[in-house]
Design a protein around this nucleic acid. Structure first.
Lengths: 191, 191
DNA sequence: GCTGTAAGCATACGGCATATACTGTGAGGT
DNA sequence: ACCTCACAGTATATGCCGTATGCTTACAGC
C-alpha cells in the first residue's frame, strides 16, 4: 500500500555522514540533508524521528564501520587490528567520531563490538569477572585517543609523533592483560 | 570613560556554567545567559566575541577548577590526586566536561595543568624525551574515562563499579611509568 | 556642566528544528 | 479497468537561535 519511497533511513544517514565529512558536524542540518537528497526537510521525518535520532544513527554507522577481525586470528592480533581499525574510522570521519563518546547508545552494532572484545579478552586469559572492567578501560583509552586526534587536541604534533603515541598506547594496553602474548625469551623458559 | 559595567566576562561564564549544570549544555544559549544576568542578549557581545568564544571560556573555567596539588607532595600522590580531582570536576559539570575533548584549547590554564603533570613525571624518572608522549596518553585516558562517565556511557553500571574501574585505571596508569613508586618488597632488594 | 566613550538596548534577519495540514500516487482489492 | 486509501512527500507556519546594525544612555575626565 502507499507509494514507493524515494529515500530511506540508510540514504539519509549516508548523506548526513557525507555532509559531516565534507563540512563538519555543524553542517549536518535537516535542511542540508534534505537538499542533498533532493527532498524537502519534512520528508526526512517519515524515516527518522528527529535530529537526535539521526545523530544516533550516525553513531551506529560508525560502529558498523569498525572492522571486526576474523575470529580465527590470535587474540592479540585481533585487539591490535580492531584498535587500528577504530583509529582509522576516526581519521575517516573526524566530524562524527566524537559522538561515540558524547552520545553513547546501546545498539546492536555496539554490542557486537563489545562482544568481539570480550571474546578476545577471554582468550587472553582475563577472568570472566574482570571482562567488563578491562573492556571498559581498553575501549575508553582507544576512544579517548581517537577522539583527541579527531578533534585536533594533538594538532600541534606531527602524524609520525601520533603514530608512535598510538604504538605506545597499544603496548600499554597489553599491560592491562594477564599473560604476555609472546614470551620474551621464547624456548628458554625456566620452570 | 564610558559607563560602569553591569556584567563581565567572568559573570557571563559563571552564568553559562550554572545553566549547563542545571539544564544541560543545549540550554546554554545567548538568550538564556543574558536572561539570567538580567540583560539583553546583545549586551553579552561587549564581553565575549561570540558563542564559540563563550564555550571556549567554559573549557577554560573547567581547567581552572582542576585542583593542582601542592608541589611538595610525592609525585605519585600528586598524579593520583590530580586524576581524582579531574574526575570530580567531571561529576560536578557533566554537561560541560565533554567540551574538554571536543573543543581543545591552548589556554594558560591548560598549560599549567600540563606543566604540573610534566613535573610529576620528571620526578617519577620519565626521560625528558618521553614526557610529552606519556602525558598525552595519561591525560587522554583520564579525560576519556571522565567524559564517558559524564555522558552516561557507563550509565548501566553502579557508582561502586565505576569507582573500582577508576581505581584500576589509576593502577594501570602507574604501569606507564618507569619506576614502581613503592618497592614491592621494602628493605629486601637484591643487588 | 560638557563631552566623548563605552555599555547596554531595540530591531531585524536568515537559518534552524519541527508541528500541522495538505496533495498525489501507486499497490491491492474489486 | 477502476476505485480507494495508506503512506511518501509537500506547503506553510511557528518559535527559537546567533548575531549584524545602529540607537540610547549614563558615567569618567576634563
Amino acid at each position: 500500500m502507499g507509494r514507493e519511497a524515494q529515500i530511506g533511513r540508510t540514504a539519509i544517514l549516508e548523506s548526513a555522514l557525507a555532509i559531516a565529512d565534507d563540512d563538519g558536524l555543524d553542517a549536518v542540518t535537516m535542511h542540508a540533508v534534505a537538499k542533498r537528497l533532493q527532498v524537502t526537510p519534512m520528508a526526512l521525518y517519515r524515516h527518522v524521528a528527529n535530529k537526535a535520532a539521526l545523530l544516533d544513527g550516525l553513531v551506529e554507522m560508525l560502529l558498523t564501520e569498525f572492522p571486526l577481525p576474523a575470529r580465527q586470528l590470535p587474540w592479540d592480533e585481533r585487539l591490535t587490528a580492531l584498535a587500528a581499525g577504530i583509529r582509522a574510522t576516526a581519521h575517516r570521519h573526524p566530524g562524527v567520531f566524537p559522538l561515540l563518546l558524547s552520545r553513547p547508545t546501546v545498539t546492536q552494532a555496539a554490542v557486537h563490538v563489545r562482544d568481539s572484545i570480550h571474546q578476545a579478552l577471554r582468550e587472553a586469559g582475563v577472568p570472566e569477572t574482570d571482562l567488563g572492567r578491562i573492556e571498559r578501560l581498553l575501549s575508553t583509552a582507544i576512544l579517548g585517543f581517537a577522539v583527541s586526534e579527531a578533534t585536533g587536541r594533538f594538532r600541534l604534533h606531527d602524524q609520525t609523533v601520533l603514530d608512535e603515541d598510538f604504538a605506545e598506547l597499544q603496548r600499554w594496553m597489553r599491560r592491562l592483560l594477564p599473560t604476555p602474548p609472546h614470551p620474551p625469551d621464547s624456548g628458554a623458559t625456566l620452570a
